[in-house]
Amino acid sequence: MKDDGKMTDTQWPRFMVFQQDEAGHPYVHNGTVHASDPEMALLIARDIFSRRPRAVGMWVVPADVIFSKTLEELVDPSWLEEFPPVNEETEKRPYYVFGKFSQQAHCEQIGEIGAQSPQAAMKAAVQTYAHRSPLMWWVFPVHAVTASTPEDIDSMYSPVLDKSYREQSEYPTVTMMRQIRAHRKLED
């Protein structure tokens, strides 16, 4: 955290966490973590988000680099004018494009696009992937992603698959409580 003499927030920066459940599947947003830096965010995300759901890969991205627009926000084209125009000579950078397809769903990976700014990336994404018609769009620079590697799978994501706490049968109290409640109902 920068010490500019007027520290108002003592929280660590926020990172968005994305998870891939099978090789080849899209990455899906599953939550956020506060962490001192991207490496710590990736480590903490392993414990918070992959205890039960299966993961083969994770990304963490600083939350403040994610440029987001809902369908409603896109209707009014003035958002494009809110930002300074980019120089034609500015080099294009790759951006990931994510979309949310229902109110309950999480943002998931749609594709990748080259652009000179987040706004340009959003504009290009909306045109290129119009047929996917998500309710909300996210774009962020590919270079902002800190990703696990395939070598991390064995130590970070596979051991959990053998854990007994994932098995419903390991929680006899749950079954016992259900039986007690059922028994009470009968008595009533």
Binding site: S36, D37, E39, M40, L43, R46, D154, S155, P159, D162
Partner: peptide, 19 residues
């Protein structure tokens, strides 16, 4: 089997010690 998971533990605690 256990060694794989311990490699992650070590990475986690190493990172904390460093910071």
């Amino acid at each position: 089997k256990i060694r794989n998971e311990e490699l992650y533990h070590l990475r986690h605690t190493r990172a904390w010690v460093h910071r």
